[in-house]
Simulated scan of single mutants.
Amino acid sequence: MTTVAVVPGDGVGPEVIDQALRVLDSLGLGLSFDVLDQINAERFRRTGVAMSHEEMVRISSARRVLLGAIGDPRVQQTGYARNVLLRLRFELDLYVNHRPAVLLDDRLSPLRDPARRSIDCVVVRENTEGAYIGSGGVLRSGTPQEIAIDNDISTRHGVSRVLGYAFSVARRSVCMVDKSNAVPFGGGLWQQCWADARSAHPGLASSHLYVDAAAMKLIQDPTAFDVIVTNNSYGDILSDVTSQLAGGLGTAASANLNPEQGVGLFEPVHGSAPDIAGQGIANPVGAVLSAALMLDHLGRGAEGDALRGAVRKAVSARRCTPDLGGQLGTEDAGAAIAAEVQ
């Protein structure tokens, strides 16, 4: 039996994860869920423990993690989120952040031109390097001469392997995005690795854009893209753009992967949304589609496609939450997806 570690987390996380588990159960796959609902901000506020060694061992043993959301406005210390999310990413070496964006229904696109609405692309974001790793510091703190430094780290090993992954999942083309005209050192390394990757994959179309031009092109015609690969911070921004073009952040799914080790963490992109937590109105689609990515990772692609098809049918019939044009709450929206699966 395949065991999946489940971390519901904070805010709307437990609400949407409940629906993802409900939909997974409707497939009858016999998955076993190891639920670690004690990993949350409430415990951290009481004890200062974000995630214990024993909990990390349980998650590592399962090798697949379904996560709801981490974050609580009552916890101001960045150490809580870093000691859960970033610890998982770094200790499991989840160097790929895979964020697909597929338009679920034509009415959800913000674009006027119908010919350009059908976005169907993937943002592949390098996940363990870049500006988010916490390298830097502050000098002369609290003085008028205070200096804050955040280092943006790129390594040949890290860049090369994420570019290789991007080519491995491409259907038509890969676009590498950087800002090497203004950020010459890290950008120069990305350019060198990009030239090597293109040479190793001559059968696929490839292109390069600076990040500002890529953002404009996405708004102009998102159908031009298949796979976009970029660094941690640019990928964070561009994947939010693609999710909005596909129907909104509530529909966005992600997979944090180490393809060689067969390890993955799957989570909706929307975060903990504390302003609507506990109201029963959170959109479960991002969590369900993250579960579908997990099924793909488990070699259950047909079942993953079944979940995606069920989501499309439910959304097209407006059996969904208000942000997608329906009138259902979280539980009823999850039930509607499960009914389409059955």
Score class of each variant (00 low, 15 high):
residue 2 T to P: 15
residue 3 T to M: 11
residue 22 R to S: 00
residue 23 V to D: 08
residue 26 S to H: 07
residue 27 L to R: 08
residue 36 L to T: 09
residue 37 D to A: 12
residue 40 N to C: 14
residue 43 R to G: 08
residue 44 F to V: 08
residue 46 R to C: 10
residue 46 R to G: 14
residue 47 T to K: 14
residue 49 V to A: 14
residue 50 A to M: 07
residue 56 M to C: 08
residue 57 V to K: 15
residue 57 V to Q: 15
residue 58 R to Y: 08
residue 66 L to H: 11
residue 71 G to E: 00
residue 74 R to K: 15
residue 79 G to C: 03
residue 80 Y to W: 13
residue 81 A to V: 15
residue 81 A to T: 15
residue 82 R to W: 12
residue 83 N to C: 02
residue 85 L to F: 06
residue 85 L to V: 14
residue 93 D to K: 08
residue 94 L to F: 04
residue 103 L to W: 11
residue 104 L to K: 08
residue 105 D to F: 02
residue 112 R to K: 15
residue 117 R to W: 03
residue 119 I to V: 15
residue 122 V to C: 05
residue 122 V to T: 12
residue 126 E to P: 03
residue 126 E to S: 04
residue 128 T to F: 03
residue 128 T to Q: 02
residue 129 E to L: 08
residue 130 G to L: 01
residue 130 G to R: 09
residue 133 I to S: 11
residue 140 R to K: 05
residue 143 T to K: 09
residue 144 P to T: 04
residue 145 Q to H: 14
residue 148 A to V: 13
residue 149 I to A: 06
residue 151 N to P: 05
residue 159 V to F: 05
residue 161 R to A: 03
residue 161 R to T: 01
residue 170 A to C: 00
residue 171 R to W: 02
residue 180 S to M: 06
residue 184 P to Q: 11
residue 184 P to E: 07
residue 192 Q to Y: 06
residue 195 A to Y: 04
residue 195 A to T: 15
residue 198 R to G: 00
residue 203 G to W: 00
residue 207 S to G: 11
residue 209 L to T: 06
residue 210 Y to D: 09
residue 211 V to H: 00
residue 211 V to C: 02
residue 212 D to Y: 01
residue 225 F to Q: 13
residue 225 F to W: 08
residue 225 F to V: 09
residue 233 S to F: 08
residue 234 Y to H: 10
residue 237 I to S: 06
residue 240 D to F: 11
residue 244 Q to P: 05
residue 249 L to N: 11
residue 250 G to W: 04
residue 251 T to L: 11
residue 254 S to C: 03
residue 268 P to V: 02
residue 269 V to C: 06
residue 277 A to V: 06
residue 284 P to W: 02
residue 285 V to H: 08
residue 285 V to F: 03
residue 288 V to E: 15
residue 289 L to S: 13
residue 290 S to N: 04
residue 300 R to G: 06
residue 300 R to E: 14
residue 302 A to M: 13
residue 303 E to M: 12
residue 304 G to R: 07
residue 304 G to S: 14
residue 307 L to S: 10
residue 314 A to I: 01
residue 316 S to D: 00
residue 318 R to N: 06
residue 321 T to E: 00
residue 322 P to M: 00
residue 324 L to D: 05
residue 324 L to F: 01
residue 325 G to N: 08
residue 326 G to I: 01
residue 326 G to K: 07
residue 338 A to M: 04
